[in-house]
Structures are given as C-alpha cells and as structure tokens.
Design a protein around this nucleic acid. Structure first.
Lengths: 188, 188
DNA sequence: CGCGCGATTGAGTAATTTCAAATCTAGTGG
DNA sequence: CCACTAGATTTGAAATTACTCAATCGCGCG
C-alpha cells in the first residue's frame, strides 16, 4: 500500500515491512477533484495530509475576498492548517485543489500515537518540521531583503515545477505582489 | 545545573533527575557581553543555542550593509543559523547580543545523539520545531496580508516584552519597514 | 559640557497598487 | 472543426505607500 509514501519515509528513516505495515494502518485515503476543498475557514482541523498526487493551495482570505497563498503542496509534501491542527481551534485558512489530488490522511491523534510508539517516526517528523522551518525562514528572508523582481526570480529558481502547473496570478499571491506587477516583471 | 533549562524542558516532557543529568552533560555554557557576536557570516555553525538570560538578534546583512532581522531570541528561546547548522554550510547570518547574555550550547552532534538516546528529547525537539514553524507562518501571513501599520500593531501585541528591550530601528528591520516609516506610525 | 546614538520630521522619489479596459487562451458544447 | 465563454494575462494611467536623503532634535553617559 502506498509505496510512494514508504519511499518518501525511507529518505529519512529505514523501515522493515512490519513497521511500514504498522504505519500504513494509521492512514486513510482521500481523493478530491480540482476545485474541491480539503479544508475551509471555520472547520475543525483534525488531520494533516500527505500529497500522493496532485497540487493544492493553502490560503487566507481577507474581508474583501482577496486571497493570500501561504503554501502550495505537491507530491510528497504535507499540508494542513497547522495553526488549527494541533490546537483544536477553527481553521483560518482554506485549502483547495488546483488539480485532481490523492491524499493520505493522518489524524492528529494517530500522528501522536505513531510518534509515541515508533521513535523512528518521531525522528522523521522532527526532521520534516526542521526542514519546513528552514524553508520558511528562507522565504521570510526573501521578503525582507528582496523586491518583487528578486522574489520572483528566487521562486522560479526554487520551485520551477510549480511555475509550470499553476496560473501566474497564484504565484503573485504567494509572492505578495499584485498579478499586474508580476506580469510587468515578466515583460522585462 | 541550569534549573531554568530543566523547567523549560518540563513544559513539554517529564524527566527524572538521572535523565536530566544525562541531558545536562551535553550542554556547555557561553557568556557574552552586549555587542559581542555569537555567529558571524561565513562561520561554520556547529551549535544551536538556548538563551538562559539576555537578548540577541539574528540578521542578514546585504551588500550595502543594511541589516534585516530574521529573529530575536530572549530567555527560553533557541537561536542559531538553522540554514547552516545542520548542513555544515557557512553561516549567512550574523547573530549578536543586544544585552549581556548567557547561553547553553548544544552541538549538532550532541543534539542528534540526545535525540537518538532519549525518545523524549526527540519529542521535545519535534514539538519545538512545529511550534516555531507555526509562529513563522503567522509572521509570513502578516507580511502577505498586512501593511506596515498592521504588522507593527501585531508585533506590539505579540511581543510586548521585546518592544521594551530593543531600539525601535531594530523593530523596523524585523518588520521590513524603514525606521522613518515606523516612526511615522508611532506619531499617529 | 559635548559626543553619539536613536528618534523624528520634511521633501522629493521610487516601487507597487488599484482601477479600467483590452487581449489572449484553453476548454466546452454544438 | 468552429464558435463561444470564462478565466488568465497584459497594458495604461492615476493614486498610494513606503523609501531615501538630509537635517534636526533629544537624551543618556562619560
């Protein structure tokens, strides 16, 4: 089951067949079509999701309806509303599919159980959390030091795959610039 | 030794005296005066630091010498150049003291050993990494959705202690605005 | 007292936004 | 295969926000 996920885990930890079977028992599958929501603002968030296939966006919507993309997630990435997920507060983000997607779902409860039962899994999640933190720091630093053009160039360099799969206006939203500005950057 | 650190750990995990002694054996102490550097750009970064007392800033310096503050760290916070720390690449950040400071130092090697030997410690670091990620996401979202004024207000609300201990020009740098702009926000 | 750093204020400038309109493109149904 | 439409992108012009540069003020400390 879900050999992709096993391979993904094994980039950081080694697992016997039995161990992987144990992990697999905690996962459920969810399939969503393009435009379907995984999480909507106000939801209770009890799961984190690993993307087996597809592409999603997590975004905040302000009072005027303008969207701000906090995260994309494609194959092998985790996604959820992490502000809501462990704390049992309501979601402030929306997450929906930019492509038909297939997800592995891990409940908060099961994640903690797994981490508790299997030291290796806790190790895996620590490493993932650290890596995520570092990536986010890089993005933060890019916001502090770079103008729109440099941020865009860094994005292209860092996530060329996303650029090909996503409309530019969403890239603009991720970069914190208007789509018009992004368009003018392209024109140069 | 370092009862503050023990108390800090015990906010997330329980430790026996023996266990804590074991942890403590991996730590060293460093005392620095105001203005002294903990890490300088180009250094090899082998440690992460827990602030027992004092206040530091981690910042990037651009080619014109302008500083951009990525992180403050006060009592009970961890600080390092995390892009450099686990990867053995050279530091791109500077970290120096805004006040006389006392730090507990944990080497990368010892951190991994501790995490390996004591499941609880790995659990602690997973929780910390997750919490750090969530905080950084909040800051990111603030950059995407808020103008200078709203970011400043959120900062005041979130970190009132830092506001009292740090010159405003550094707050401006953390918020990604010029000190003049921040001053004008104050005037309103 | 005077220095040095931090904070403030003013004026002009640059970057980016907003609003409006035109153009382009991919997917759909006939 | 074509026409149509919704969404995506581009372009222009005006408005806004924040920046830079320069000068001044204020205060704590030696």
């Amino acid at each position: 089951m879900h050999e992709e996920f096993r391979r993904h885990l094994e980039e950081l930890i080694e697992l016997t067949d039995d161990e992987y079977t144990h992990v697999g028992a905690y996962l459920t599958v969810k399939k969503l079509k393009k435009h379907q929501f995984l999480i909507q603002e106000g939801d209770t968030v009890n799961h984190t999701y690993w993307v087996k296939k597809g592409l999603l966006k997590a975004y905040f919507t302000d009072e005027k309806g303008k969207e701000f993309i906090l995260q994309f997630a494609m194959e092998n990435w985790w996604i959820s509303d992490y502000q809501a997920y462990p704390n049992q507060t309501k979601a402030i983000l929306n997450i929906d599919c930019l492509e038909d997607s297939e997800l592995l779902c891990l409940s908060s409860e099961n994640r903690e159980k797994l981490c508790d039962e299997m030291h290796k899994i806790e190790h895996y999640f620590r490493k993932k959390a650290n890596a995520g933190f570092v990536e986010l720091q890089k993005r933060m630093l890019s916001f502090l030091t770079n103008n729109a053009k440099n941020r865009y160039e860094l994005f292209i360099q860092t996530y060329p795959q996303i650029l090909l799969r996503v409309p530019k206006k969403l890239i603009a939203s991720y970069l914190g610039v208007s789509r018009e500005t992004l368009s003018r950057l392209n024109a140069e």
